[in-house]
Design a binder for these strands. Structure first.
Lengths: 144, 144
DNA sequence: GCTTGACCCTGTAGTGGCTACAGGGTGTGT
DNA sequence: ACACACCCTGTAGCCACTACAGGGTCAAGC
């Protein structure tokens, strides 16, 4: 199987495969006489695993660790748990941040109702609030 | 005011200020005879505005646009609205993705209960599901 | 046989928003 | 004089790709 075929089978870009090989995540395959990469079935499995982890926003460094766990069946399962737990923590933290951001933007957006010029713009006025020493609606904990 | 003083006043790194100047977001200040940057009050205001926008995860290219609106008071306010609206849309989209990710990770995490070795690990088993042509718990729409 | 287009190769650079480093200059206190 | 904190410019690195440059290979169509 050539690289384009592997890419299509795994729903990934050819360049991504080369990237994974370069950083050591995917083993380098054998080559055809013309120098083309020649992939066997194991590569698709590994690539599918990697893409599965990436779909869960797992960092490549952690994907590499998970692959090491796969390759060493005697590894303690608790280490796998810990890795997924920390990923879950990361996602939840980012979730919290974004939820706060949404609220802030909604509050800010509400400062502009009627069409006007920028000089009278409530949004810009609020964005300039810290400059004036004022508390803005987007970062005012009491207004939310 | 020297760059370190401005950085402290705006709660930002010195390097970030130099970066903003390099990309044209902050105007270059005058210089002392020894070549040091000499900042006046207007710079702190502009930097505060930039940091305020950044705290709302607004991309620098959009911050630059907002600054142009500030500098041209005749700009139509609707353009400011549109910019904040698109930012809100972006945040909401990312929120959706992360909420889905959280659910997926929770489902995956639930596959491992008791201490074991990696060979029996439910998490790794699920991460390998697509390889076997199976549907994994993290991406199975019916299981959620 | 030639042309064309799709695919392949390696190596490098770019994305966004910083952050860190190298190598050197300036000012102040001891 | 020395040490340390700060300043300067320029460059590189982070993360996970993605795009490009320049060149080679293959197969189908004329």
């Amino acid at each position: 199987m050539k690289i384009g075929e592997l890419a299509k089978a795994a729903h990934v870009e050819v360049e991504t495969i080369r990237y994974y090989e370069r950083i050591g995540l995917l083993p380098a395959p054998s080559r055809s006489p013309n120098g083309y990469r020649a992939y066997a079935g194991g590569h698709l499995e590994r690539l599918a695993f990697i893409r599965h982890c990436r779909a869960l926003d797992i960092a490549l460094v952690d994907v590499a660790q998970l692959l090491r766990f796969v390759d060493d069946p005697t590894t303690d399962c608790a280490e796998v748990d810990a890795l997924i737990d920390s990923q879950l923590t990361r996602v939840r933290a980012r979730l919290d941040t974004l939820q706060m951001l949404e609220r802030q933007l909604v509050a800010l957006r509400s400062q502009c109702g009627a069409p006007d010029r920028a000089a009278q713009c409530g949004i810009l006025h609020e964005l300039e609030a810290p400059t004036r020493g004022d508390v803005c609606v987007c970062h005012d904990e009491h207004a939310q």
